[in-house]
Computed example of a mutant assay.
Amino acid sequence: MTLVAPTLADYEASADLATLLVRTTEGDALSVSAETLRLSCKCAHCTRARFDGRFPDGFPGIAIVEIGDLGYGLNISFSDGHNRGIYPTPYLLSLAGR
Score class of each variant (00 low, 15 high):
1 M>Q: 10
2 T>N: 13
2 T>S: 07
2 T>K: 15
3 L>S: 15
4 V>A: 15
5 A>Y: 09
7 T>N: 12
7 T>D: 11
10 D>N: 07
11 Y>T: 10
11 Y>G: 03
11 Y>R: 05
11 Y>N: 10
11 Y>D: 11
12 E>A: 15
12 E>M: 10
12 E>W: 08
12 E>Q: 14
13 A>R: 12
14 S>G: 06
15 A>Q: 12
16 D>E: 00
16 D>A: 05
16 D>G: 08
16 D>C: 02
21 L>Y: 02
22 V>S: 01
22 V>H: 02
24 T>W: 01
28 D>F: 13
28 D>M: 08
28 D>N: 11
30 L>D: 02
30 L>P: 02
32 V>A: 04
32 V>C: 05
33 S>L: 11
35 E>W: 06
36 T>D: 07
36 T>E: 07
36 T>P: 04
37 L>I: 08
38 R>V: 02
38 R>Y: 05
38 R>F: 04
39 L>H: 06
40 S>K: 10
41 C>W: 01
42 K>H: 14
43 C>R: 09
45 H>K: 14
45 H>G: 09
46 C>F: 09
46 C>I: 07
48 R>L: 14
48 R>V: 01
48 R>G: 00
49 A>E: 13
49 A>V: 05
52 D>N: 12
52 D>M: 15
53 G>D: 03
53 G>Q: 10
54 R>G: 08
55 F>H: 15
55 F>K: 10
55 F>L: 05
56 P>V: 11
56 P>D: 09
57 D>S: 14
57 D>E: 14
58 G>L: 07
58 G>V: 02
60 P>V: 07
60 P>W: 01
61 G>I: 00
62 I>N: 05
62 I>P: 04
62 I>D: 04
63 A>Y: 04
64 I>F: 08
64 I>D: 08
64 I>H: 06
66 E>I: 04
66 E>W: 12
67 I>C: 05
68 G>C: 10
69 D>I: 10
70 L>Y: 14
70 L>G: 10
71 G>C: 09
71 G>E: 08
71 G>F: 06
73 G>C: 12
73 G>M: 07
73 G>N: 06
74 L>Q: 05
78 F>Q: 06
78 F>R: 00
79 S>V: 00
79 S>W: 06
79 S>R: 04
81 G>H: 14
83 N>L: 05
84 R>P: 00
84 R>N: 15
84 R>K: 14
84 R>W: 14
84 R>V: 04
84 R>F: 14
85 G>V: 07
88 P>W: 10
89 T>E: 10
90 P>N: 13
90 P>G: 12
91 Y>D: 07
91 Y>L: 10
92 L>E: 01
92 L>K: 01
94 S>V: 00
94 S>D: 15
95 L>M: 01
96 A>T: 05
96 A>W: 01
96 A>C: 12
97 G>W: 08
97 G>T: 03
98 R>N: 08
98 R>G: 07
